[in-house]
Design a protein around this nucleic acid. Sequence first.
DNA 1: TGTGGTCAACTTATCATACCAGTTGGGAAA
DNA 2: TTTCCCAACTGGTATGATAAGTTGACCACA
Lengths: 247, 247
Amino acid sequence: MTRHALDAVRKQSLSESAYRQLSDKILRNEYAPGDPLPAERELSEALQVNRGAVREAIKRLQQAGLVAVRHGSKHVVRDYLSEGGLELLPNLLVDKQGRLNGAVVRSIMAMRSSLAPDIAAAAAKKGGKALAEELDALLSQMRADQKDLKALQDHALAFWQKLVARGGNIAFRLAFNSMTKTYTQVWDVLTPVLEKEFRDFDNLGAIAKAVRQGDAGRAREAGLRHVEIGRSALERALRKLDGGDAP
Amino acid sequence: MTRHALDAVRKQSLSESAYRQLSDKILRNEYAPGDPLPAERELSEALQVNRGAVREAIKRLQQAGLVAVRHGSKHVVRDYLSEGGLELLPNLLVDKQGRLNGAVVRSIMAMRSSLAPDIAAAAAKKGGKALAEELDALLSQMRADQKDLKALQDHALAFWQKLVARGGNIAFRLAFNSMTKTYTQVWDVLTPVLEKEFRDFDNLGAIAKAVRQGDAGRAREAGLRHVEIGRSALERALRKLDGGDAP
DNA sequence: TGTGGTCAACTTATCATACCAGTTGGGAAA
DNA sequence: TTTCCCAACTGGTATGATAAGTTGACCACA
């Protein structure tokens, strides 16, 4: 898995474009909660696509908690803050101009600090020697790849993927995936900012050791120390940018 | 908001039925990661719906991380454990026969214990006196409604909704929504099981007080004590059932 | 005044058919 | 052996039509 490789070239489907435009308008409050969306036939004309594509987009908006759908009535915009799920996070991180939303970044880092310690603890309880071996092998690889920050970044993600996969907690796993989808949008931007975290072999090593010993408490502590390194680094970077919009 | 009131009667759309059948097959591993899904035209015949409905369902599967879509190739099932997001959690909690999956319940309660303390802490930092007033009012209402466990349940949810809404953390907010969507499927089942938590006025009061004082540490501790009550209760209930499948 | 019924206009839901755009694997040619 | 071509298959899009549900206006009746 190489996140800085060239990306597949793929034509975006019309329904995908429609979904993005509509979800963007909703998330930017151009269509406010309670507002009716234009009728499907109107949207079809406005977006210059057939109505099937509009319907496909709207089904996705419904799934994302962005609109309420009732047969025979116009679709009504919902309050995503109260009704939307974690899958919306990628849409909120970066605006149309590609700028990072500082408040969203801080939110994500806070949530990472909530989850990562318990992910590490669960892995220490459930992972056993086999997981510890895998983590040790990965750490060795990281030490060998020290010159290559991009590779370190990928290894660090793989480290956490191993932890969350073996901790036996499906909720952590799915939340982890949702958050990873969010970061990977700005993967290259994160590379220099989180360098210290990617090189934090001490705490990652402590987690691996705690996993070997089945010591959840130690894993939790080391997990927290580790992600707080990244959180502080990002906080510093954000202060430099002095940006951030609250949704 | 009354979760035990009569529910709106609404016909399920054909594309909704198709989505459910297909997502269920994927989540139960009847279609395994890497398997191609039957072609759209085939699914249209098998499901006895027109192809438009199949396409709508498939767009939703794609959005949920359950299938990969490529123009000209069959849709391929993805590994939702690695690719799926938190929005899948409601689908995993209850099986087709309406039985609770114990491992999913435990996962959710663990994640709640990870998030709730920090949600309370964030609210204490950001909420101010206005929030504290609202929480106090709600607690008064809860005390007045002590005889009505259903009402207590709703108030308890409202308490946490206020906390998460005012903590200024969008990630917590969206995760909270995703988890709430999951519990509300089994809302009535939870009523007797979580009774002690709904009556935990002491810790809820301590959170409200911490909010008034801007004391994040106290809020965090009280928040953790509070949700651990529910977690223990559910653990006891699960042991009685002696059930649970791991996904 | 409040309630129930009817109706037209609007909206979503579904369907069928046709054509376009991309993928894949087999066979032929170099 | 490699490259190219092509048919069959697949998803993507479009169009036009009909069915099912919603809403508000209007009317009748108690």
